[in-house]
Nucleic acid binder design. Structure first.
Lengths: 150, 150
DNA sequence: TGCTGATCGTCAGTACAGCTGACGGTCAGG
DNA sequence: CCTGACCGTCAGCTGTACTGACGATCAGCA
């Protein structure tokens, strides 16, 4: 058993929610100068990582709904960081790719976010930080891509 | 292989968000039979843990806004799990306390939630599970005690 | 060739948590 | 008293994500 009778501060739900909140806060502060937020940086990373992809593929890799991805890409396109291009062999799809500005922003924003993560992990030490990251990975993507958003 | 420090799935923001989401999902499934959700269980825990408290104190301990606490208590009161009572010495305050049904529900719902947490932590083993919990505590709780793997 | 079912991007409508700003009612100090 | 602070409450706004539907397109099959 999880010992210590009660204490809401020990519940995993509480801890995860607040950890996520704090990380989001630090990330926002770090990313503001580049005009993107954490979710948008995620999109840029996914687009940069694997080669030409449809909107839906990007959405699946991030675990967000395809309808959410539409708005996400709208703002990124408006900022000039990504571009939609018709798929050469399937006219239902849009191929999403980074612009020059997008690549540039990705580079710098990632560095800033790395610094935010280091600040977040500061209380843990290097070993504890690695353990936390590994544990989260193990818990989040054990069975392939989990299918969080459908 | 998409390892290395690029890859959106390695970002802490992503991992925390999805971990929190998965835990919430498991919790919801576990708690549904008792008619409460994770946030409500948190409220019950806080009320049970420390003795007579105002709504505001409960809200602060959970890190939620006092205006949010109003609605939260409304539903719990409607379910007959908590009761508002006037504070004997300060008529601005409501003292919040558990009813008999509240205590009963707290007991059983906590057990169910514990099972959900064990399921969530299953991929980690007992040692890894403890490390994760400690790491989250260290990162979330305001620089109180910690000294994890320092 | 034409039909049928599935897929993609899009959009409107909905739901929900959480916040802001304001309000009466109350307390404490001078 | 009277002023300022506090408590609980409520209306209203925000941000986020989902549902359900639509037109356009593709693939399979007779």
């Amino acid at each position: 058993m999880v010992s210590s009778g009660h204490a809401a501060s020990g519940r995993l739900g509480y801890l995860l929610k607040h950890a996520q909140y704090r990380m989001a806060e630090l990330n926002e502060k770090a990313l503001t100068p580049f005009g993107v937020d954490g979710r948008e940086l995620g999109v840029l990373l996914v687009i940069a990582g694997h080669e030409p992809q449809s909107q839906q593929q990007v959405a699946q890799r991030l675990g967000v709904d395809r309808t959410t991805m539409v708005a996400l890409l709208d703002t990124l396109e408006r900022k000039g960081l990504v571009a939609r291009r018709p798929h050469p062999e399937d006219r239902r799809r849009n191929v999403v790719e980074l612009t020059g500005a997008g690549t540039e922003t990705l580079e710098r924003a990632t560095e800033a976010s790395d610094r935010a993560e280091r600040e977040f992990l500061a209380p843990l030490g290097e070993r504890g930080a690695r353990q936390l990251r590994d544990a989260l990975r193990a818990v989040v993507l054990p069975e392939g891509q989990s299918s969080i958003g459908r």
